[in-house]
Structures are given as C-alpha cells and as structure tokens.
Amino acid sequence: MLSGIAAKAAGVVVTGVAGAAVYDGVKRIARSGAFRSATVAVTAWGLKGARAAETGAEKVRLATADVLSEARERIGEQAPVPGAPAGHGHDH
C-alpha cells in the first residue's frame, strides 16, 4: 500500500515539474517578444484577408446592381431612387 502511494506521489511530482518547466518556457517566450510578434503578424494577415473579402463582396454587389439595372431598362422599368422605400410610395 505504501509503494502505491509513493508511486502516485512520484507521478504528481513529475507532473508538477513538467508543468513548471512548460510555464517557464512560455514565460520566457512571452518576454522575448517572439510571441507578440507572431500574434501581430497573424492578425495582420487576418486583416488583409478581411479587406480582400470586403473588396470582393463590394465588387459582387456592384455587378449585381448593374445587371438589375440593365434588366429593368430592357423591360422598360425605371430603377427606383436609391434609398426610396419599397412599394409605390404611399400607405393604404
């Protein structure tokens, strides 16, 4: 029974020492600025990706508006004034 307790205690000590070593390593990396630098780089990539997606979405929106405008023109319908309420302009 005593050997089982000693084995468990040794396991806890090993786990604690390993955890402390990992903690010290992470702390050292954080102090060196490498972690911050990597985080800033990844965030910059994310911002560039978001800007590219926004640009693409705007191009799609404009192309769709052009197609709708041309289709309305072909059927003789005037395009609504931008910002005008939906419907025909008055309440019933």
Rank of each mutant, 00 (worst) to 15 (best):
A7V: 12
S32I: 11
H92Y: 03
A50I: 13
S37C: 06
T64Q: 11
S37N: 12
A6Y: 05
G56A: 07
S37A: 13
D91V: 10
G89F: 00
A34Q: 14
D24G: 12
R28K: 11
W45A: 03
D24L: 11
A44D: 02
L47C: 08
A10P: 00
G56V: 05
A53K: 15
H90M: 11
H88M: 09
K27S: 09
F35C: 12
P85V: 09
G19H: 04
A65N: 05
V26R: 15
A21L: 15
V40E: 15
S37R: 13
G16W: 00
G89Q: 02
D91Y: 09
G33C: 04
A65W: 06
S32F: 04
R51F: 08
E70R: 13
A18N: 10
A53L: 15
L47T: 08
E58M: 09
D66G: 00
A50H: 11
A7M: 10
R61E: 07
V42A: 06
H92D: 08
R31C: 08
V67D: 10
A41F: 08
G4P: 03
Q78S: 13
E58K: 03
D66Y: 01
I5A: 10
E77C: 02
A50K: 13
S37P: 01
G4S: 12
A52L: 13
E77N: 10
K59H: 08
L47I: 12
S32E: 11
P80W: 03
A53W: 15
K48W: 12
G25K: 09
R51A: 10
G16H: 01
V81M: 06
G11E: 09
V81T: 05
G83E: 07
H88W: 09
P85A: 07
R28G: 02
T39L: 15
A79G: 03
G49D: 12
A30Q: 15
E54W: 14
A20Q: 13
G4K: 02
A79D: 07
E54G: 04
A63R: 00
F35E: 14
R28I: 04
V60P: 00
R51W: 07
P82V: 04
P85L: 06
T43V: 09
A84G: 08
T64N: 10
R31D: 13
V81A: 10
R36K: 12
T39G: 13
Q78I: 02
E77K: 00
R51I: 07
G19F: 04
V60Y: 02
T64W: 01
R28L: 02
I29P: 00
Q78P: 00
Y23Q: 13
V40I: 14
V40C: 09
A65K: 10
G89T: 01
E54F: 14
A7W: 09
L62E: 12
V81Y: 02
K48C: 10
A10C: 05
I75H: 06
R74V: 02
V60H: 03
A41R: 05
I5R: 08
V14G: 05
G19N: 07
K8S: 01
L2K: 06
M1P: 00
W45H: 06
A10I: 03
G4W: 04
W45Y: 03
V60N: 01
V12Y: 08
K48H: 04
T55G: 05
T15D: 05
H92V: 06
V13E: 03
L47W: 08
E77D: 11
R74S: 04
V60A: 11
A30Y: 03
T55A: 14
G46P: 02
R28T: 12
V67F: 05
A30P: 01
E54R: 15
A71R: 08
E54T: 15
